[in-house]
Design a binder for these strands. Sequence first.
RNA 1: GCGCCGGUAGCUCAAUUGGCAGAGCAUUUGACUCUUAAUCAACAGGUUCCGGGUUCAAGUCCCGGCCGGCGCACCA
Length: 468
Amino acid sequence: MTSPYQFAHDAYAARLRQSFDHLAPGEESGEVVRVAGRVMLLRTQGRLTFATLRDSSGEVQLFCLEAATEGYEAFTRLHLGDWVGAVGEVVRTQRGELSVKVATWAVLAEARRTFGEKWAGITDVELRYRHREADLWANETTRASLRRRSDVVRALREHCWAQGFVEVETPILNAVPTGAAARPFVTFHNALDSEFFLRIAPELWLKRLVVGGFERVFELGRVFRNEGVSPRHNPEFTMLELYAAYWDYADMMRFTEELVAGAVAAVLGTTELVYQGRAVSFATPWARRPMAELVSEALGEEVTVRTPRATLAALLAERGVEVADAWGAGRCVLELFEHLCEGDLWAPTFVTDYPVEVSPLARRHRDDPELTERFEAFVTGRELANGFSELNDPVEQRARFEDQARLAAAGEDETMSIDEDYIASLEWGLPPTAGLGVGVDRLAMIVADAANIREVIAFPTLKPRREG
RNA sequence: GCGCCGGUAGCUCAAUUGGCAGAGCAUUUGACUCUUAAUCAACAGGUUCCGGGUUCAAGUCCCGGCCGGCGCACCA
């Protein structure tokens, strides 16, 4: 018997449960349906057999009688995990379980491997990540986490569309890895005889589209950073980046809190949730706190980017942070923030007014030339989003890139490369613009209550298994 | 990259001080006309992650390696 190419199915488990809720135990509906899914459990009792069938919506029982089911004997020999299509009347058994009383049925595909212990499922994390398909069938929480991720992505995209943003796609293969400070993955194009880098951010391309007249653009896509793997970092991850002409960073903060709170509400039905046992409210507006203010509070003494570098360096050294020679006062303030404040920002908070030194693409603050109009959104102690009024002066942008080059020369690992094409694009004129980047995996983690980023990535990056 | 912890049957887990490597589920065979992780009976199932070493004897102790988890570092 060849395996079927098709099965015309017209019913889902969840909908059957709703539609036939009224059936009393022992009652037969008279209605014939065609269901399909995997056999999750099988209970044979001589001349009658019960199977639990699971489809994408849920589970429903199949009820087979030797006298009423074609090929009954073969049905009793099904394996857990086999894909089955069944045709039969919707009934409720004497014991009250809604069932499809199978008249005819077909194996759609065999499962030649098992899906783990039927109660404990699969717990081996390595097996779960390397064979997510098995994990998905074995574990409800995996299905829920990946489903929530999908819902988050949908909500973000729909919010952007609704606000008039145009979705675009920009190159992943880049001759210059730029738009962020991170080590790239390197690859090679044979015909062009050139080295390429997988993008670390789409930022500069997107702003070039704004120069070209797309006033509101967004890209929802994968970026790649050649850095350590951790429960919060996957080498490839998903970022939402968007740019809006004529906005400044205050406009963008308002947009960001609506975007994120809206996505949380769209998925969970509320802006209130519990992450890892601790309540978080995404209700807007979120707190806005200048970085220097937060650092000063944590230190118990007033510091700013104008505090002498030596003083800041001493404060860092006291806390066991190794201070590099190349760091100026601005970088020191940022380091103090990261060590003293970041982890405590549990409720959504915009940290604003980053030092110029650590923000090479952000526009100078209108009230303080040592700062930029930049913010980062923190929640559950982690960075979730980063945005700013975009630097649109090509002369200053070149100078900022040159500062980065000096840092690189001084031994800093991760600096931003000069992108001449980008400077050229600024010379054509970038209107006042605000930009935003949101870590989609991080947001999915919060919504799925996942402690590990791999739980919201279908196929997380793992070290390849070595054969032999 | 560094540190700590882990890896036993297809899956979930046991194995005392170093003393014959076991159970449940799944698989295979049989019984059973209302089951719900069905139940009952029987059979079978092993490179204890890999490679060395110590020992009369190693899943267990020692060394090296592989893979994973967590922490640190780096970042979002």
